[in-house]
Simulated assay, not measured.
Amino acid sequence: MKMDFVLANPPFNQDPWGAGAVKDDVRWKYGTPPDSNANYAWMQHFLHHLAPNGRAGFVMANGSMTTTAHNEGDIRKGLIEDDVVDCIVALPPQLFFSTGIPVCLWFFDRDKASSGERDRRGEILFIDARQMGEAVSRKQIRLSDEDVAEIARTYHAWRGQPEAGEYEDRPGFCRAATLEQVEAQGFGLSPGRYVGAAETVDDEVAFETRMIELIERLSLDLSLADELTAEVRSALGAVGYDV
C-alpha cells in the first residue's frame, strides 16, 4: 500500500520493538534498525509506504537528529544522500503531558521537484523553534497559533508556495542548507548547527533611556554615600578621631 501523505506521532525511543522478527524486511533499505530503538524503523516504515510523490511528517525525539548508536548514523546518512529529507524543525521541551523531553519534526518528500513548487533537490530546510512557545504551567510549554503559523509559513515559503511569500534565511531561526553542508556536519540534522545565532539590533533609544536611568541611580547612590561619609566623620570626631 502506497500513501500520498503520512502524519504520525510514533512512540519515542521504543525499546525493544521486536527487530528480530523482521530482520530481513524489505522496508530496511538503509539498514536494519537496532532493537534498542525503533525510531529509524518507524522512519523507514513511513518512507517505504510513500507513493512516488508522497510526503510524510512525523514527531521524533531529538536524539534521532544526531545519533550514531549502532547503525543509526548510517541509516540517517542514507536518507540524506537519497534526498528524501525535506525539513527538520527543533521544538521546545515540555510540549507533551506525558514527557518533558524535547522533540523535533521530520518531513520527508519523495519528489522535491514537484510541479507548482520550487525545485528543492539537494537542499534541507532547518528551523530552530526551541525559543518559541509560552509556559502554561511549570511542566508544560504551549506553542501559540502565531508560533505555529510562523513555522508553517516559513516551510511553505521555502517550498515555493506563492501565498506564503518570499523565503529568506533568518539567523537563529531558519536556514536552507545544501547536502554538502550537511555532509560537512557529519550528517547531523540538529537545526542549531545550521541556523547560527540570532542577529542583535542596537536600539539607540532604549540604550539612551537606560543610560539616563543608570545615571540617575548613580547620582542618588553618590549622594547617599556623601551623607554616610559625613555621618561617619562626625561620629569619629565626637570620640577624638579626625578623618
Rank of each mutant, 00 (worst) to 15 (best):
M1K: 01
K2M: 12
K2S: 12
K2E: 14
V6S: 03
A8E: 01
P11A: 08
F12M: 05
F12Q: 08
P16D: 11
W17P: 03
W17E: 01
G18A: 03
K23H: 12
D24C: 04
D25T: 07
Y30K: 01
G31A: 04
D35N: 15
D35E: 07
D35Y: 07
S36R: 04
A38M: 00
A38E: 05
A38D: 01
N39R: 06
W42R: 05
Q44N: 13
H45P: 03
L47T: 07
L50R: 05
A51G: 11
N53A: 15
N53R: 15
G57S: 04
G63T: 02
S64P: 09
N71F: 08
N71P: 02
E72N: 01
D74V: 09
D74L: 10
I75V: 13
I75R: 09
G78F: 14
E81P: 04
V84D: 00
C87V: 14
I88L: 15
L91E: 04
P93K: 01
F96R: 00
S98H: 08
T99C: 01
G100L: 10
F108A: 05
F108C: 10
R110S: 06
S115F: 11
G122T: 06
L125K: 02
F126R: 03
R130D: 02
Q131D: 15
A135T: 09
R142D: 04
R142V: 11
L143P: 00
D145Y: 04
V148T: 12
E150G: 01
Y155N: 08
H156D: 11
H156N: 09
R159S: 04
G160M: 11
G160S: 11
G160K: 06
P162C: 04
E163F: 10
E163S: 15
A164Y: 05
E168A: 12
P171K: 13
P171G: 04
F173A: 03
R175G: 00
A177L: 07
E180V: 10
V182P: 02
V182G: 02
A184T: 06
G188Q: 15
L189I: 03
L189T: 07
S190C: 09
P191L: 11
G192C: 05
V195M: 09
A198E: 14
A198S: 15
T200I: 13
V201Y: 03
V201C: 01
D203M: 05
V205G: 10
E213R: 12
E213A: 14
L218K: 10
L218T: 06
L222V: 08
A225F: 12
D226F: 08
S234G: 06
L236N: 03
G237N: 14
V243D: 07
